[in-house]
């Protein structure tokens, strides 16, 4: 059984279809990425998972049952646009967010102290939120998200606007939660973050799910004709070469797709013969970015996600 199963979700706003018949499944103990451009429908999808929006049609199942209050209480949600009550004290803020999840009492207070100490905020616990630095406000928000010990972490564009320290901190939290057996769902338009962190994913474009499954399976499926190459020299001779279908320059590396799966060795031989200094030759490898571009296209006017 899946931890979360999304079936045929659709949501329209004034004639615009934000999410169009989306279906995907989130396995237990996975780090699940919802990946797509800005405006693709990621936030709307997440809001429907959390029952903030009701879908026009379709359903979300939580361990086999329709999502409801029980799911809500077992989720820690970090929205893209984060916010706290400015005039509230750190301590009150944390207890309040736990309380509306139905958790209060000594155990939660102890936990709050634990996290405050861990994140170097214990001395500031009686400060008002508005008196904290932006980075510290973000930390308070992280604690508020996980304080009630949720089974699910739902993070919408979690890395947007974080400084490097908090980025690492959040990554740590995600890995820690994964180790505890929790499910982490996060949306991002940053493909390389996704590639490094997720094990399952759904790719969404213009409201439609264009790809979903385990990252390793997806890569295997798409990578058979792909080579990721780091080199020194001039490879312009490969353009219009009979065995090469496509060359994509990613700056640090170059993605080359050959016409049939058996031709990768031939490509390597070709490069060596031409005296190209090969630093890295990775057959059967493809970046998420390449997959995305292949599926969602790279038309003019469309914002291409960062590689």
């Amino acid at each position: 059984m899946y931890a979360l199963e999304v079936k045929n979700l659709t949501k329209r706003f004034d004639g615009l279809t934000a999410v169009d018949n989306a279906s995907f499944a989130v396995p237990e103990n996975s780090v699940f990425g919802i990946i797509g451009r800005n405006g693709a429908g990621k936030t709307t999808t997440i809001r429907m998972l959390l029952n903030i929006y009701l879908p026009d049609s379709g359903e979300v199942f939580f361990r086999g049952n329709k999502v409801g209050r029980e799911f809500r209480d077992s989720v820690g949600y970090l929205p893209e646009e984060r916010g706290l009550y400015k005039k509230m004290r750190v301590w009150d803020t944390l207890l309040f967010f736990a309380e509306i999840k139905g958790k209060s009492g000594k155990a939660i207070q102890d936990k709050a102290i634990h996290y405050l100490k861990k994140f170097d905020l214990y001395d500031r616990r009686l400060s008002k939120i508005e008196d904290l630095s932006k980075g510290n406000q973000q930390k308070v928000q992280f604690i508020a998200t996980i304080l009630h010990d949720p089974d699910f972490l739902v993070l919408d564009e979690p890395f947007a606007g974080l400084d490097p320290i908090n980025t690492d901190l959040l990554r740590e939290i995600i890995l820690e939660k994964k180790e505890e057996g929790k499910v982490i769902i996060f949306s991002t338009h940053l493909m390389d973050y996704a590639e490094k962190m997720v094990d399952h994913l759904a790719m969404i474009d213009e409201g439609k799910i264009i790809l979903q499954g385990a990252l390793s399976e997806i890569k295997k499926q798409y990578a058979q004709r792909n080579v990721s190459l780091t080199f020194e020299g001039d490879i312009s001779f490969l353009h219009n070469h009979p065995i090469v279908e496509k060359i994509t320059d990613f700056g640090n590396s170059t993605g080359i797709r050959v016409k049939s799966p058996g031709q990768t060795q031939e490509l390597l031989k070709l490069l060596v013969e031409r005296g190209i200094t090969i630093k890295q030759f990775n057959a059967n490898d493809i970046s998420l970015h390449e997959i995305f571009v292949e599926l969602a296209g790279n038309e003019k006017g469309k914002e291409v996600p960062n590689a």
């Binding site: 970090l78 706290l84 967010f97």
Partner: peptide
């Protein structure tokens, strides 16, 4: 308006309706 503008509302709505 504060809740709406600060976007706190979204966090709260993930807990209560």
């Amino acid at each position: 308006m504060e809740e709406k503008n600060n976007r706190i509302v979204e966090v709260i709505l993930s807990s209560v309706n």
